[in-house]
Every structure is written in C-alpha cells, then in structure tokens.
C-alpha cells in the first residue's frame, strides 16, 4: 500500500506539471479523483485492510486525496486567472504601460520657472487678457503712433482703446500702478497678436515676464539673475551673451542670447548662422514707465525681463509644430 501511495503521488506531480489547460486539468481530476480514479480506487481498497493497517493508511490516503484536491484547485485558479498571475511570478517580464494624466508642456515649464523664481523671493503675478491701451502701451513708454502699437500687429476689441494684451508687460504696469515697492514678481501668461496660424506662429503665445523694483537696483543685479536663470534652464555650462538692445519700456535695454548648442557658436542653420540664439529681452525699467505707474524714479529703480515660452517648450519636448502644442494634437499615452 505504501509503495502505491508513493507511486500515485509522484505520478500525480509529474502529470500536474504537464497540465496547461482547464480541459487537461479536468482529465487529470478524473484520472485520480474520479469514480474510477487511481486515488479513489486506492481509497476503496482501504476497507479490505486490517484494522491496524486502516489506522496507518487511512489518514495517509485522506491526506493524499486532500493534497491532490487542493493542488488541482490551485492549478485551476492559475489557469482560469489571466496571464498576469503567471507574469507576477516571472519578474523578468516588463510590465504593461498604463496611461496617467499629464500636465500641458507649457504648464510644466512655467512651474519649473516659477519654482526657480519663488526660491529667489519672487511672487507670481496675474492680470487681465483684455487690456486697455493705457496699461498695454502708454505706461510702457509707447506713445500714440509708436510703430510697436500698429493696428496690424494688435488684436483690437474697441478701436484705440481695448485690445488683447500683446505682452505680459501689461501686468507689470498694472502691478506697479497698484502695489508699492519693493516688488519682485514673475508673470507667466497668454498674449495675443494679429497673425495667421502656421507651424511656428499662432495668434496667441505664452510669455514669461519678470520685474524687480526697489531702492538701489542696478543692471548688475539683472545680469546676475539672468545668468542664474539661464544656468537653471540650460545647465551650468551654458554660454551667454549680453548685448545692448533697444526696447521702448526699458533703458538701458539688454538682449540675452545663449550659445547655439548645435554648432557651439560657429553658426549653423538652427541659429541662422549667428552662433547664438536670442532668448530674452530685458533692461532697466524706463523712468517714464515708473513715473506713469506712480513710482518716483529718483528713489526707486528696477529691472524687467521677458521671454517667449513657446519655442523653449517646443525645444524641450521635441514638438515641431506649434499648432500641435496648442491645438490639442499632443499624443499622450
């Protein structure tokens, strides 16, 4: 009897290993635990044994039956459940990618920049997108008839009066007009221009503006924050070029370029053979702007800077068509 038990046990184990489908498992059940199954038959022989043998083999046979039943049950579970059960055992198989929610690339970049400036003690400012000529042009030292205020570049809502803001500088004049210095503020925001949509331009775009007004602010402070900011954006090794550039709302004005990372300053198609790529405009806030906003330029000085975000977002995320960035054709997972 002992030998038979051992034989059935080992045959069962090897048979079970061969089972890959529920049908095969049913057959296995019948083979061992069915009416004519080997285990059942062995159990049937039990009554023919002596009382002392019954006491030895009874529990052993019962154990065998129970163990086979539970093994079949386990196997059945394994077979009926999907493959993931198997997969969870094989840790070398890569998992399936499940979709998650995404922030818009522009939001991601704005957050990164905000983080940087928050650490430097800047607040985040906001303002209206429907703006009037006063805040969008006049207080920025752009008098009537200035070429930058041309009708063909601006989306007007009411002639000579209301428009869609053409830059985030309008938020600068609003904050300077309503808050007292000292001020350190950055303004990310949507701006508008009268342009036909193309792969590189849309009639709205994102700008990132920053300004500081306090006593004793000079152009060296501007150079310092812009150096750190560009190192934060492009890495410590980035080569910068600071040059004079005219902007009506600042004097002295300053343009900032980064060395082209495709040609390393030699000049290529990407940088239009300049060796550098223009990234930002800045300067010391024009005394006329401060005055127009009710701030005495003989007591307070300040700097301002502004940059377009879209080109930067597109570069960082490898997007070649701006219409995809804002037209909703971003392919997320």
């Amino acid at each position: 009897m002992q030998t038979q038990i051992t034989q059935i046990q080992s045959r069962f184990t090897s048979d079970l290993d061969q089972v890959h489908t529920p049908t095969e498992l049913d057959a296995l059940y019948l083979k061992y635990l069915g009416k004519k199954g080997s285990t059942t038959q062995l159990l049937g022989q039990l009554k023919e044994l002596s009382l002392s043998d019954k006491k030895i083999y009874g529990p052993l046979l019962n154990q065998l039956k129970q163990s086979q039943e539970s093994q079949i049950k386990d196997k059945s579970k394994l077979l009926s459940s999907d493959v993931s059960h198997l997969l969870s055992m094989d840790l070398t198989i890569p998992g399936q990618i499940k979709p998650i929610g995404h922030l818009h690339p522009t939001t991601i970049l704005i957050r990164e920049m905000n983080d940087f400036f928050r650490q430097q003690g800047y607040s985040i400012g906001e303002g209206p997108e429907i703006e009037n000529v006063e805040y969008n042009f006049r207080r920025l030292n752009l008098p009537e008839g200035h070429p930058a205020t041309d009708l063909q570049d601006t989306l007007f809502i009411r002639e000579g009066d209301l428009l869609l803001r053409t830059h985030t500088s309008s938020v600068e004049t609003r904050i300077l007009s309503s808050q007292k210095p000292p001020l350190r503020v950055v303004v990310p925001g949507k701006c508008y221009r009268n342009e036909t949509n193309s792969t590189t331009n849309t009639n709205f775009f994102y700008q990132y503006q920053g300004f500081v007004v306090d006593q004793g602010i000079n152009i060296q402070h501007l150079k310092s924050i812009l150096t750190e900011f560009h190192q934060f954006l492009f890495g410590k090794d980035i080569k910068l070029r600071f040059r004079y550039k005219y902007y009506p709302e600042v004097t002295p004005g300053m343009g900032v370029d980064i060395e082209c990372n495709f040609c390393h300053g030699k000049g290529c198609q990407i940088c239009k053979y300049r060796g550098f790529i223009e990234v930002l405009g800045s300067g010391m806030i024009h005394p006329n702007t401060l005055k127009a906003c009710g701030i005495d330029p003989s007591i307070y000085t300040g700097f301002a800077f502004g940059m377009g975000l879209d080109r930067l977002v597109m570069t960082k995320f490898g997007i070649t068509d701006i219409r995809k960035l804002y037209g909703g054709e971003l392919i997320y997972l």
Binding site: G121, I124, G125, E126, V185, I217, Q220, S224, F242, M254
Partner: peptide, 23 residues
C-alpha cells in the same frame, strides 16, 4: 561693452509675497 559689466546678486530683503491665492 555689456561684457564688462559684473553680475551682482540681489541683496535687498525679499518683499512680501503677493501671489494670488487663486494661482
């Protein structure tokens, strides 16, 4: 030449935060 301008970190005290709560 702007190249000859040094860079000097701001040392004035950090102004109060005016970030709108809504942001």
């Amino acid at each position: 030449n702007y190249d000859n301008l040094p860079a000097l970190a701001l040392s004035t005290p950090i102004p109060p935060d005016i970030t709108p709560e809504l942001y």
